[in-house]
Amino acid sequence: MPTASVNGIEIDYLLEGEGERTVVLVNGLADEKETWAYQTPALLEAGYRVLTFDNRGVGATSKPAGPYTTELLADDTKALVDTLGITDFHLLGVSMGGMIVQEYALKHPADLRSLTLACTYAAPGPFCSRMFSMWEDLAPVMGVPFVMRDVTLWAFTLDFFRTREDELAEFETGMKHLNMPTPAYLAQLSAIQTHDTTARLPGLAVPTLVLAGDEDILIPTALSHDLHELVPGSRWETTRGGHGCVWEHPDDFNTTLLRFLTEIERTTP
């Protein structure tokens, strides 16, 4: 995979497709760029170029000492797209990625044709804060793969556990072999614990879709709706599934996303 030396680190990335317009996809906590395996083919088929990359702290990207912030991770993203010469693009982030792209859009709105905030929040609030505090305590003692076993329980719906045993086993195996040392995990975890754009989002001036899994219990759907209400003119949509709706029901997620992108392309010069 190619790498780019930006913002003091090496970022491992993949740029695919020949389309004139690019979609930049930003991962969640502890997720590598392969997270988007269910979205990239649909976007390529629709005629887009697609940029995926490993955030600071995970996969083949550098893992400097933390803690990290969502603003720092947004600065990494900005440095990468600038180095690759990508402009006037669609930006999508899921979970922690949704927090990172909020910071990006607030700092660099002129770069963007659209913004999609998926399964994310403006601030963690008392519920998520307590959950993340537990992960922070568990990771140094039990290791990151153990914490990711807990994340799996929160990410998928009951139906997924009942009917899709083979896929579940694949996800669990992938989490066992996650390329992320505990200090890097805690550095990323700090970013989602401290993220708070509540006071600034009313000034966001980018066409925005806020999209949530209708059964999300990890970042409750209500928190995503609170985010939607903070962003002027944003569109609110839900899709089948929980926090892992990008994997559990990718066709539904992709259809909703592509409908939004198509409307932006039709109405934006």
Results as ranks from 00 to 15, higher is better:
21 R>G: 06
149 R>Y: 03
182 T>C: 13
234 S>I: 00
58 V>W: 10
162 R>F: 07
87 T>G: 11
111 D>A: 07
25 L>R: 04
116 T>E: 07
2 P>A: 07
188 Q>Y: 10
74 A>H: 14
228 H>M: 10
112 L>P: 14
138 L>M: 14
176 K>I: 15
230 L>R: 15
207 P>N: 06
132 F>K: 04
165 E>A: 14
134 M>V: 13
32 E>D: 08
172 E>T: 10
136 E>W: 03
127 F>H: 13
35 T>Y: 15
261 L>G: 00
133 S>I: 00
170 E>F: 02
268 T>N: 12
5 S>L: 14
181 P>D: 11
45 E>R: 10
224 S>G: 14
223 L>V: 05
159 D>F: 02
167 E>V: 00
212 A>R: 01
186 L>A: 08
212 A>I: 04
27 N>V: 04
138 L>N: 06
101 V>E: 09
207 P>S: 10
128 C>H: 14
213 G>V: 01
212 A>C: 11
62 S>Y: 00
154 W>P: 05
138 L>T: 07
123 A>L: 01
210 V>P: 01
56 R>C: 01
148 M>G: 01
131 M>Q: 09
117 L>T: 01
260 F>N: 00
204 L>M: 06
148 M>W: 07
65 A>T: 11
137 D>H: 13
88 D>Y: 10
153 L>G: 14
236 W>P: 00
29 L>A: 06
220 P>R: 06
150 D>R: 09
61 T>L: 03
246 V>I: 15
138 L>R: 11
106 L>E: 04
205 A>V: 05
223 L>R: 10
169 A>R: 12
15 L>D: 03
201 L>N: 08
181 P>K: 06
229 E>T: 15
259 R>S: 14
28 G>E: 02
68 Y>C: 08
153 L>V: 14
237 E>S: 05
55 N>Q: 15
47 G>W: 01
187 A>W: 07
69 T>H: 06
68 Y>Q: 12
93 G>P: 03
11 I>P: 04
47 G>H: 04
259 R>W: 07
266 R>S: 12
153 L>F: 09
243 H>N: 09
189 L>R: 02
6 V>T: 10
251 D>P: 09
259 R>F: 02
91 L>N: 05
72 L>G: 06
103 E>L: 00
31 D>P: 07
244 G>W: 04
74 A>W: 14
48 Y>E: 03
130 R>N: 07
264 I>A: 00
133 S>L: 05
84 L>P: 09
136 E>N: 11
168 L>V: 01
249 H>N: 12
11 I>N: 15
26 V>H: 13
78 K>A: 10
116 T>Y: 10
45 E>T: 07
75 D>T: 13
247 W>R: 02
249 H>L: 05
211 L>T: 03
104 Y>I: 01
184 A>G: 08
219 I>C: 06
143 G>A: 04
237 E>P: 00
203 G>R: 05
183 P>C: 04
167 E>N: 13
166 D>L: 15
47 G>T: 03
49 R>D: 01
146 F>K: 09
57 G>Y: 12
205 A>S: 12
68 Y>L: 08
